[in-house]
């Protein structure tokens, strides 16, 4: 088995009294798009900063490409691209000059750098803005510049910390497509976000973080299978008696039924034909109903079940 790109064992990081990272474990393999999903303040950025050795930590070990990371591990840093949560570019340099600056921190060869910078500009589609100063760019374009600065030197590992915060939907889709493309070209990706849809859309594997702990890890499907709920059926209905609800609950695989605001919610665990069974029952009882939805569980459901709170606040 090849060495993992990142291996974190028992990481603990305290900010005086606050335990920001609490015995955190993680292993990321080559070629993954790994999602670090967690609400604000769950410790995603702190974890990234520890990986990059920007922060010292209290306990545990971190290995990058099989080697311990230190502030002066410049050979390791050479292979890492980083897109920080806060946009970090020079206001006094243009789009082109900024990308060239950051690329030049890694690539000394002038011609190669020029080629890389051009490729990065094309990649984030900022060609027509190359002479713009950052102050003149919209939020989405600025994020794209930030990404270009992080990936221009063609790193093997790319870490993106909430790259889509405060970005319009169009730019957001461009960014997500770009990340998938970078991965296709061979880079391992670490992607942090508190948007479960994004993570679910692009990540091959996901760790759910809460209060500095890794509470669940796996592919989106694996995570959803970990929980009891496998299907959520919602039916618009004007009224329903307690008797009917009891009967519904006794149907196979149904483990929870509740009714509120004209909506009947039926939670099922396993089984393939739950919706049909529920609708059959309603028809037999001559109960008229409106629209019907059947949803597979979301990562939010996973988060809710594991932590008892909503992912989105």
């Amino acid at each position: 088995m090849s060495t993992p790109v990142i291996k974190i064992e028992n990481l603990v990081k305290r900010y005086s009294d606050l335990v920001a990272i609490d015995h955190f474990n993680l292993e990321i393999k080559d070629g993954e798009i790994f999602g670090l999903l967690g609400p604000n303040g769950s410790g995603k950025t702190t974890t990234i900063n520890c990986i990059l050795s920007l922060l010292s930590f209290d306990k545990g070990t971190i290995e990058v490409f099989g080697k311990k990371m230190h502030p002066d591990s410049y050979d390791l840093k050479r292979q890492i691209g980083i897109v920080m949560q806060n946009v970090a570019v020079f206001d006094t340099l243009t789009v082109y000059e900024n990308i060239d600056y950051f690329c030049g921190l890694y690539i000394k060869d002038k011609n190669l750098r020029k080629q890389y910078v051009e490729e990065a500009i094309a990649f984030v589609e900022l060609d027509q803005f190359r002479k713009f100063y950052p102050k003149k760019l919209s939020g989405g374009l600025l994020r794209r510049l930030n990404i270009a600065c992080g990936i221009a030197h063609k790193p093997k590992l790319i870490i993106l910390d909430e790259p889509t915060v405060a970005v319009d939907p169009q730019s957001r889709n461009k960014i997500l497509e770009g990340i998938v493309e970078l991965n296709r070209q061979g880079a391992t990706i670490i992607y942090t976000s508190h948007y479960m849809e994004e993570v679910e859309q692009i990540c091959t594997r996901i760790a759910i973080m809460d209060s500095g702990k890794n509470i669940a890890c796996g592919t989106a499907d694996e995570l959803k299978q970990m929980i009891k709920k496998s299907e959520k059926i919602t039916i618009e209905i004007s009224s329903i008696s307690d008797e009917h609800m009891k009967n519904l609950l006794s149907l196979p695989h149904v483990y929870d039924v509740d009714y509120s605001n004209g909506q009947l919610n039926v939670s099922c665990s396993g089984g393939r034909h739950n919706l049909i069974h529920v609708l059959e029952y309603l028809q037999q009882q001559d109960l008229s109903f409106g629209r019907v939805y059947s949803e597979l569980p979301t990562l939010n459901d996973v988060f809710l079940e594991v932590t008892g709170k909503e992912l989105r606040d």
């Binding site: 840093k77 970090a88 570019v89 006094t92 921190l105």
Partner: peptide, 22 residues
């Protein structure tokens, strides 16, 4: 202003992730 820019927290952090030595 130049030094302030180079030492601005976010930029300084970002730059120190690079492979150019301190």
């Amino acid at each position: 202003p130049i030094l302030t820019t180079f030492w601005q927290k976010d930029l300084a952090k970002r730059i120190s992730c690079s492979s150019t030595s301190l």
